[in-house]
Amino acid sequence: MTDRAAVIRDITERFSEDIQRLDDVSHKRVYIDIETGSLVKMALYLFEQVGARFNIASGVDCRSHIEILYHFTVEDINLMVSLRVRLDREKPVVDSLTPYMKAADWIEREMNELLGIEFTGHPDMRRLLLADFWPKGVYPLRADYEEWDDSAVRDRGV
């Protein structure tokens, strides 16, 4: 598949039930809002069948919910497809991609630590980034994060 329109048409037809909304924002960016349960099959289709490269995922705490964007690049046609899932902020859970895609391993561990998202089926959810003494259940990238360490100098008021 070397044609941009064909790739997008193929995805929309194949996953018509899973796609909530598709934003074709520019010639190189498409954002697709999908059902949380459809993530694995859509991501794998992009990664394995379309031959897209997994750029990375970016989690965002939107206060009302938590969002994850999984960015894939189809390099032949210079198109970045970002799959968006919305998770319940109280209990953010989504299926892990790591059993099928090694490339997703570290970023899922990162999002687990920084945003408190649970990835069902991740084989190795050890701490990757935060210090060993960082308390459990404190997620620094949550919007309502508050400083817990009295001795820390993290922001000098600049």
Binding site: I56, S58, V60, A103, W106
Partner: peptide, 27 residues
């Protein structure tokens, strides 16, 4: 190097995700 920026119209990004190449290469 990959950067994702979300703006809400104020003068600050509400989210700024940074991914350096070594994050993918190290594993």
């Amino acid at each position: 190097v990959f950067h994702y920026v979300r703006s809400d119209g104020t003068n600050r990004p509400v989210r700024h995700k940074v991914r350096a190449p070594t994050f993918m290469n190290l594993p």
